[in-house]
């Protein structure tokens, strides 16, 4: 078995098991926790609507912080949207998903994907530089932050290398790319990358709690 076969077969398979089991483990573990009893009178009836409202409003910065966070916020958006497009709108990737989902969706031309991939990497690097140079950010950063950054950016970089044919031969690069994705899949449920599936859960919970307390959201 060559490296590519290993990457496409066992490596991806094991990574998929870990991704699915790990993500569900963490979600179920959190959702089944008993709610902390709140004996106070609810100010407003916190419900699903409140959750959705905060999920939406927290997507933008509250006005007092707008100036201060404009740069990292923009970079983060570029990185996340770029990553989304690269993962889900690159045609060979769609074929990958179609392989087990059984359906497809329209993609973008390779040149657009390439541009978005480069934008994602550049903004990712900009955010890392900010994390290292900003003393407060550096203080609150741990291994998880740096490793999560690495496993996210590495697959994009290897993917871009394939399209420009740099370094190794295509099949070797493809194998490295798939292995880098497997690494991302394995790490995703356990570190801060868990926000992939937790972000809206936590935000919604915050919304419901705040609504109940009568906070302006």
């Amino acid at each position: 078995m060559d490296l590519l076969e290993f990457a496409k077969g066992p490596a991806l398979q094991v990574a998929a098991y870990i991704l699915v089991a790990g993500s569900i483990w963490r979600l179920v573990g959190i959702l089944l926790l008993k709610e902390k009893p709140d004996f106070s009178e609810p100010r407003q009836s916190g419900g699903l609507l409140a959750a959705l409202k905060v999920i939406y409003t927290r997507s933008f910065t509250a006005s007092p912080f707008k100036r201060a966070t404009l740069y990292p916020k923009m970079m983060a958006y570029v990185m996340h949207l770029g990553l989304f497009a690269v993962v889900f709108l690159f045609v060979p990737h769609i074929m990958f998903f179609e392989g087990f989902l059984g359906f497809e969706w329209p993609g973008l031309p390779n040149s657009v994907i390439f541009f978005l991939g480069v934008a994602a990497v550049v903004s990712g690097i900009a955010l890392l530089v900010r994390r290292i140079t900003n003393p407060v950010l550096r203080l609150i950063s741990n291994f998880d932050d740096y490793f999560s950054w690495f496993v996210t950016l590495f697959p994009i970089v290897t993917g871009l290398l394939i399209s420009v044919r740099m370094g190794f031969r295509y099949e070797t690069l493809l194998a490295i790319h798939i292995l880098s994705v497997a690494l991302l899949m394995i790490w995703l449920p356990f570190g801060k990358l868990g926000h992939t599936f937790l972000v809206f859960v936590t935000r919604g919970t915050t919304g419901m709690v705040f609504e109940r307390r009568g906070a302006k959201t």
Partner: peptide
């Protein structure tokens, strides 16, 4: 297609999901 992964069955993946539920519980 070359980009297709070689997953052997959905059953094992379902097993992984069940394991996740159990661990979570």
């Amino acid at each position: 297609p070359l980009s297709t992964g070689h997953f052997d069955s959905g059953e094992k993946l379902a097993g992984a999901a069940a394991a996740g539920v159990a661990l979570g519980a």
